[in-house]
């Protein structure tokens, strides 16, 4: 009988630097499993963001580029345009993608660039120490919103998946969560679908992952999972928002 639980080949032996209870490790593993299952490790190039996952390249065993803050979709565009045979994905957090890199992600999605984006939404800037993100929930306290996010002043959190799904260019846009095994299974299915659309040279593909940041939320890992489910999921509903087969009718 073979191993029932083994480390994916696409995942390295390095210990991660992530905090206890952080969900980046789960998402890394899902990405690695999908890459193994599709047999694409030898032609995959990952792009690391600026943020907590800046060192993501240490945890994978295939080619990696490290981007500047927010620019990963532009780099992915550059690679994919000159080497369409490579499989390219960006791995970006909410500060990186939804704040400083909003222009790059929208235009890459709208051009229908054939790469995949894994968007980690944990409602906070992690690496710089828990500052407010575009995805921070109303009234959520962060180090730069000490009295809670005041939507009168800074607006409502941005639903990136919905924003991208509103573009008329065909794409695969999904949101999942990695806060419970039942969600994680779905998350992997969507991630695999996203990479498969790229493999088939179909469209831009995007999976948002609702995640936790116990350290910067000031919670235990379990409290964080509960908070994400109760506070984030109602605002960030999970599911496939758009597939290239069924583009929302232009009305």
């Amino acid at each position: 009988m073979g191993k029932t639980f083994a480390k994916p080949e696409a995942l390295s032996d390095a210990n991660t630097h992530y905090c206890p209870g952080c969900t980046h490790g789960v998402i890394h593993r899902l990405v690695a499993e999908v890459i193994d299952e599709l047999g694409i490790r030898g032609r995959t190039v990952g792009i690391a963001p600026v943020g907590c996952a800046v060192l993501a390249y240490n945890y994978f065993t295939f080619d990696f580029q490290e981007a500047a803050h927010g620019r990963a979709p532009a780099m992915a565009t550059g690679i994919k345009r000159v080497r369409p045979d490579l499989m390219v994905f960006t791995y970006q957090g909410d500060g990186d993608l939804a704040s400083i890199g909003m222009g790059e992600i929208i235009h890459a999605a709208n051009r229908g660039e054939k790469f995949t984006t894994v968007f980690v939404n944990n409602a906070v800037y992690g690496m710089t120490g828990g500052q407010m993100a575009p995805t921070t929930m109303p009234d959520q306290r962060t180090t730069t919103s000490p009295f809670g996010r005041n939507v009168e002043e800074v607006g409502m959190p941005i639903r990136v998946a919905e924003l991208l799904a509103a573009l008329q260019t065909p794409a695969y846009i999904a949101r999942q969560a990695v806060i419970h095994p039942k969600f994680i299974k779905k998350a992997k299915r969507c991630l695999k679908a996203a990479f498969t659309y790229q493999l088939e040279n179909r469209c831009f593909s995007f999976v948002e992952m609702i995640s936790t940041c116990p350290t910067n939320w000031g919670m235990t890992p379990l409290q964080a999972l509960k908070w994400a489910e109760e506070t984030m999921l109602p605002y960030y509903p999970i599911g496939e928002l758009k597939t290239p087969e069924a583009t929302p009718a232009s009305n």
């Binding site: 580029q65 500047a68 532009a74 780099m75 565009t77 550059g78 690679i79 994919k80 000159v82 790059e104």
Partner: peptide, 26 residues
């Protein structure tokens, strides 16, 4: 060849970076 009009000079500089890192003249 590949011609692409980027959304900004900032983005273009990273398209250049990505393509150059992938080993192509750009």
């Amino acid at each position: 060849g590949v011609f692409l009009q980027g959304e900004s000079e900032v983005a273009v500089s990273y398209m250049i970076f990505g393509a150059a890192a992938a080993g192509e003249r750009v």
